[in-house]
């Protein structure tokens, strides 16, 4: 049984800033990290193989430097890593990305049957949550998104039981293998790699596959294979601020003049808020 984890190199979005002078994103120099949700997926995959056997393969589609993130996954216990990297694949949207990754998984499947594909719930840079379902659809795998717990595998019956989170409820689901899971952080943080694990990861020879190795149709991958195009990227126009009341000039005065203005200028909103109807509804 082979488990494939799809991981993504992402900019550490907590570090990304907007240049206030030009109102543009400052991407340069922001460190790249492995998408945190994907690390959770790798950890869960390794735990499954520790219990049920099998191997974990990690794949990423990205620029050559994404090798760093693959090695991180290897240090956590993944058995092999594949870097899907090719200029022809650059600029892909989610449709083209899921096509390329599905092609890579199919290639892995020819060597050792792939029973489980795992992805993070979403990537912290794009937050689209589309690539996982896209891969599942292309491969014809059962799709289980927002998985927060892996309850067990039944190798005989070829089923997996998981808990998944939906709005205001959780579901316990038994699904037929092969499956594609996208995982929540609740599944459990990645371990701290052992020293031998880390050394093994550094020494591991990472396979690099391009569009040719994957026998990808050129029209279906990269920028060409992407139905969506980005027209513009811009910082959201800020709301305009209103009056500022400073309490250093007297607490009582500041608060009361604010409330006076509020009740006067926003009379409609205030009366709606304070009407008994809405109070009952919201209480």
């Amino acid at each position: 049984m082979q488990i494939v984890c799809c991981v993504k190199q992402v900019p550490d979005t907590t570090q990304v800033k907007i240049d206030p002078a030009t109102n543009t994103l400052v991407r340069a120099g922001v460190e790249s990290i492995c998408n945190p949700y994907d690390l959770v997926a790798v950890e869960a995959a390794v735990k499954i193989t520790e219990k049920y056997g099998g191997s974990v393969s990690v794949i990423t589609m990205g620029i050559p430097s994404a090798e760093v993130q693959l090695r991180e996954c290897l240090s956590l216990g993944a058995h092999q890593a594949i870097l899907v990297s090719d200029r022809a694949l650059a600029g892909a949207d989610t449709l083209a990305t899921s096509y390329t990754l599905a092609s890579a998984i199919q290639k892995l499947n020819e060597i050792d049957p792939v029973q489980i594909v795992m992805c993070g719930k979403q990537a912290i840079d794009g937050d689209t949550a589309q690539t996982g379902p896209g891969i599942a659809t292309r491969l014809g795998f059962t799709q289980l998104t927002y998985v927060s717990q892996i309850i067990g595998l039944d190798i005989q019956k070829q089923t997996i039981t998981v808990r998944r989170e939906i709005e205001n409820a959780s579901q316990i689901i038994e699904a037929k293998l092969p499956v594609m899971l996208t995982v929540e952080l609740e599944l459990g943080a990645a371990r701290y790699a052992t020293l031998p694990g880390l050394i093994k990861a550094i020494k591991h020879e990472i396979k690099v596959w391009g569009a040719k190795e994957l026998s990808c149709t050129a029209e279906k991958c990269g920028l060409k294979g992407s139905p969506t195009s980005v027209k513009t990227i811009f910082a959201p126009p800020p709301r305009k601020g209103g009056p500022v009341y400073d309490t250093t000039e007297g607490m009582d005065q500041a608060v009361n003049s604010l409330l006076d203005t509020l009740f006067q200028k926003e009379a409609a909103i205030m009366s709606e808020i304070l009407s008994n109807d809405s109070k009952v509804k919201n209480a």
Partner: peptide
């Protein structure tokens, strides 16, 4: 839509599909 962890907005279109 917001992108880059909500740091910035992108306007996207789909011309040929």
């Amino acid at each position: 839509r917001p992108t880059f962890g909500g740091n910035i907005m992108a306007t996207i279109y789909c011309r040929n599909h």
